[in-house]
Design a protein around this nucleic acid. Structure first.
Length: 606
DNA sequence: GGACGCTGTCATCTT
DNA sequence: ATAAGATGACAGCGT
């Protein structure tokens, strides 16, 4: 395609975050009851909403809303079978794409979803999920799991392998299981439904209960601190807030701080399902959006493949529409994740043309030419390569140079550091990190010494990530579970240098986080011990005062009884030998003894 | 310029 | 065997 023809081409900018932003704004409006034009009544509760939103999610609302022309004040009473408890999560889902449910209410929600004709949920979610929840047929072989971290690990591993049956899990296990990211076994390698119970990078999730001595579920690693800090420990100590995925934060009324959904009774099982399909309408991908690391190939079908970062991912893509009439096929080139990682952005390359190999050469040069027409594209060699666009060194170079252009910093595409995805081939181009003329000389190559002493290690790591042309961010390298990480390494074609770097980044980042946790625990422990010391001091003061008071009372009582004894003995006119016998069988504390030998006993009692 | 606190990293141990 | 996390020790940096 010539430059002239490209100049006459139409360009399309497609933002995949736009829709989620819009939805988010709508949700905020709903919460503030702004621009809401619909009241939904379920049982005795009413919910405000935007009719357009509900109509777009639900057949029921679509039918009901379209039959009303009232501009304002439309009130829709839901059928009796739709409960408020079942509807509310659906309403949340309509505005957030996330369905939060428990094992207890999943059936209720499913029923409501069915009645209301909630799209994207029925088949993709419940039909898959419910058997996992309620099928007890697969529970036979499960062994009794140990509590604490090992439980989590076992469950995590089983869950990742898809062998888990939630019925097999004890309440404590559920507690541990809940924040994990479960991926049930996928029947098909492509586009399988999955359930996400999102992952917690932290460790044991048992929050200390009121009893304070309830340690059994704690990880032994934490037990020392837990025991040392005793009662003062709170959920904050266990929950790693720094790395907690927001979407799984449960609002625990017992915990003033946002923490993972743990409760003292061990009964926590809220599960969050993220769905992009509410935005893109891809029903099949409903549950796959929250799961395993996967490599997105260049073709549209693979867009359904699980995306590692889908729960938080926001992607931007540039869609360059070529002249389809000349191409013979629709041509949509979206720069792929490989490049996107290089640019710390999510610019995908995907061709609707299944035979993308043929066109990739054209596309690479075309894209460069097209990009040149965008004002922020700097000069770069328009090299073609028959090996395909993805991961081609020429494009990397271009993209790198683009990234390094100061103007590009303002480019919204470069704001996100997100997507995992495209394959990064190191074929004929070799390592893109080696000898790239676009990499600043002071940052190229291995410079571990300077790395260690860089001021901002994390940002430096991020820089290195794109220097190394890695298709994922530091955050992703660190936050991947072990299995996911291994899977990712298998799927990516890393050079040895890249591999070492990824491992290095992961190790150091994890250790950095661990060191922070460790220091925080120490500080918390010190603080708690200080509090404990204060408390003990205060308690000691109280006890000392109490003891003095009791002593005074004792003296007073002794004096009183002493007087009474004296009177009794005097009135009884006991003879001395009778008094001796009486004293013999009296305790030394008895006033009679003092009466007989006042000096010794009195001084003793005081 | 030294003390101090914070932070990242490494080495080592435990799980 | 391997990975992950915890933690002591050390070093660099800023105040």
């Amino acid at each position: 395609m010539s430059i002239e023809s490209l100049k006459s081409s139409k360009f399309t900018f497609q933002s995949s975050v736009h829709s989620s932003h819009v939805l988010q704004c709508l949700n905020e409006q709903r919460k503030k009851d702004l621009l809401c034009d619909l009241t939904v009544v379920a049982e005795n509760l009413s919910f405000r909403a935007h009719r357009a939103v509900l109509a777009s999610c639900s057949d029921f609302f679509s039918a009901r809303v379209s039959s009303h022309t009232t501009a304002q004040g439309l009130v829709i009473s839901l059928p009796d079978e739709v409960t408020a408890g079942g509807f509310e999560p659906l309403l949340e889902f309509a505005y957030t794409s996330k369905l939060i449910f428990t094992k207890e209410n999943v059936l209720e929600i499913r029923n409501c979803a069915t009645v209301l004709g909630f799209k994207n949920l029925d088949k993709a979610c419940f039909d898959f999920l419910l058997p996992k929840f309620f099928d007890s047929s697969r529970s036979g072989s499960k062994v009794q799991r140990q509590r604490c971290c090992k439980t989590k690990c076992c469950i995590s591993r089983d869950a990742e392998l898809g062998f888990i049956n939630k019925d097999d899990i004890s309440d404590e296990d559920k507690l541990l299981l809940q924040p994990l990211q479960l991926r049930f076994k996928e029947p098909e390698p492509s586009c399988p439904p999955s359930v996400a119970i999102e992952d917690v990078p932290g460790d044991c999730l048992k929050v200390q209960s009121e009893s304070n001595t309830d340690y059994p579920l704690l990880c032994p690693k934490y037990r020392k601190f837990q025991i040392a800090c005793g009662k003062e420990r709170s959920c904050l100590d266990v929950c790693d807030l720094e790395t907690a995925p927001v979407s799984l934060v449960k609002k625990d009324e017992n915990c003033p701080l946002p923490c993972f959904p743990c409760s003292s009774n061990g009964d926590c099982k809220e599960i969050s399902i993220c769905s992009k399909t509410a935005l893109n309408g891809d029903e099949d991908s409903l549950l796959s959006e929250c799961c395993a690391p996967s490599v997105c190939g260049p073709c549209s079908p693979c867009m359904k493949k699980p995306s590692l970062t889908s729960c938080r991912d926001s992607t931007e893509s540039i869609c360059v529409s070529g002249d389809s009439s000349k191409q013979g096929l629709p041509f949509c080139s979206v720069m792929n994740d490989a490049e996107s990682a290089v640019m710390n952005s999510n610019i995908e390359t995907c061709s609707l043309d299944q035979s993308n190999t043929l066109r990739s050469e054209q596309r690479s040069s075309e894209e460069i030419e097209v990009a040149k027409q965008l004002t922020f594209w700097p000069e770069c060699p328009a090299q073609g390569s028959p090996s395909g666009l993805v991961g081609k060194p020429s494009n990397f170079n271009c993209l790198k140079s683009w990234h390094m252009d100061p103007r590009a910093i303002e480019c919204p595409f470069l704001q996100d550091f997100g997507a995992v995805g495209a394959q990064l081939h190191d074929g004929e181009g070799g390592s893109t990190s080696q000898g790239s003329p676009y990499v600043p000389s002071n940052q190229s190559g291995e410079d571990s010494d300077s790395f260690d002493t860089e001021g901002d290690s994390e940002s430096y790591s991020s820089e290195r990530v794109w220097e190394m042309a890695l298709p994922l961010s530091v955050e992703q390298i660190v936050s991947l579970s072990r299995n996911d990480f291994q899977q990712m390494l298998k799927q990516q074609c890393f050079t040895r240098e890249q591999l070492e770097f990824v491992h290095d980044i992961r190790r150091r980042s994890k250790n950095r986080i661990a060191a922070r946790r460790c220091r925080k625990r120490k500080l918390d422990c010190i603080h708690n011990l200080e509090c404990e010391i204060e408390k003990l001091r205060s308690e000691r003061g109280k006890l000392t005062a109490e003891r003095m008071q009791l002593n005074q009372m004792k003296v007073k009582a002794w004096q009183t009884y002493s007087g009474l004894y004296e009177r009794v003995c005097a009135e009884a006119a006991l003879r001395p030998e009778q008094l001796q016998v009486l004293a013999k069988y009296s305790s030394p504390d008895c006033p009679l003894s003092a009466f007989l030998c006042p000096s010794s006993n009195h001084s003793q009692s005081t």
